[in-house]
Write a protein that binds this DNA or RNA. Structure first.
Length: 203
DNA sequence: CGTACGATCTGCT
DNA sequence: GCAGATCGTACGA
């Protein structure tokens, strides 16, 4: 089931980041359908969050889409070479976003491996926000895209992870954010946890 | 304008 | 464990 507009309007970006674990992220880019189950996310909680690009109400050409209505892609270039994919959430003018940090490949594994320039699949191959975008073909060209369209979207696969199968920690790489670097806004699960809860046994 | 740096990844030691 | 890649953005002069 494709996630609808109302899903992204949730005003609690932290609980939404947790809820996104186990959802399927799909792209149809360059004629290829590729997807992965989300295994790791981070919440960026708007103007009050020192780790967010929108901290203090900062609004620039780069982060403009964060201020749009929830349900769009915010993709930006990091370190000059990595395209980082975020889901914009909450209503217009409230710049909340969830960074997708890791996936477990689902559709189009071979294409994903080719994009990643890997011969075989090993666990860390799609672990890391830059790797997720590379595997799914997402670049800054996708910035501002609606997640209700047919280029990038999410689906609920009916995976119901128990709370104790989702872990939390501080966010990665945000040391500059002072006390906010310690907030437990990162959520993740394991491949084994996911497979144990997946309704289709063949997976 | 000039410059410093980043929500990272890879390959080499 | 560490340096290098690589460039758009932000911010100060």
């Amino acid at each position: 089931m494709k996630l609808q507009a109302s899903y992204y309007l949730n005003d609690n970006v932290v609980s939404l980041a947790q809820n996104l674990i186990g959802k399927l992220l799909l792209t149809r880019i360059d004629g290829h359908l590729t997807s992965g189950l989300i295994t790791e996310t981070e919440a960026y909680a708007g103007v009050a969050d020192r780790a967010s690009h929108a901290f203090g109400g900062k609004r620039t050409a780069r982060n403009e889409v964060m201020y749009h209505c929830g349900g769009k892609a915010y993709v930006y270039l990091c370190y000059g070479l990595h395209h980082l994919f975020n889901i914009v959430t909450n209503e217009e003018d409230i710049p909340h976003a969830v960074l997708i940090r890791s996936i477990l490949p689902y559709d189009g594994l071979q294409i994903q491996l080719e994009r990643r320039k890997c011969k075989i699949w090993l666990y860390p191959v799609m672990q890391g926000p830059g790797k997720v975008s590379q595997a799914l073909g997402i670049t800054v060209q996708e910035n501002g895209q609606s997640l209700l369209g047919r280029r990038i979207w999410l689906e609920d696969m009916g995976i119901l992870l128990p709370k104790n199968a989702i872990y939390s920690s501080a966010r990665i790489g945000v040391d500059y954010a002072g006390d906010d670097a310690l907030l437990p806004y990162r959520f993740y699960t394991t491949e084994a946890n996911l497979k144990a809860c997946f309704p289709i046994k063949s997976f």
